[in-house]
């Protein structure tokens, strides 16, 4: 099971194009009535494909940079 951090989706910015749903390799994102939603957070691998494909920058996957 994956822990914690998930891609953040800004629904105010989202244009409902559905590209993130198509790009997700694990089908963790689905298009619901209010917009794309990570319906299976355990399946999300934080691969950042949804962030990369979003044409309006509505999805962000941030990384802290830390020492081991």
């Amino acid at each position: 099971m994956m822990a914690g951090v998930l891609p953040q989706i800004d629904l105010m910015r989202c244009i409902l194009c559905g590209r993130c749903v198509q790009a997700c390799p694990t089908q963790a994102v689905e298009m619901l009535a209010n917009g794309p939603t990570i319906v299976r957070p355990d399946a999300c691998t934080y691969c950042t494909a949804c962030e990369a494909i979003c044409p309006v920058g509505a999805i962000t996957c941030t990384f802290e940079i830390v020492w081991k």
Binding site: M2, G4, V5, E64, V66, W67
Partner: peptide, 29 residues
């Protein structure tokens, strides 16, 4: 972005860092 992604993967392949969920963990100063 694509170039950064490739560079991160190459540094990870070289054992200098590890990509985690929400974290880039540096391993080898």
């Amino acid at each position: 972005r694509d170039v950064v992604g490739r560079a991160l993967r190459s540094l990870a392949d070289a054992g200098l860092l590890r990509m985690e969920r929400g974290r880039i963990v540096l391993l080898d100063r």
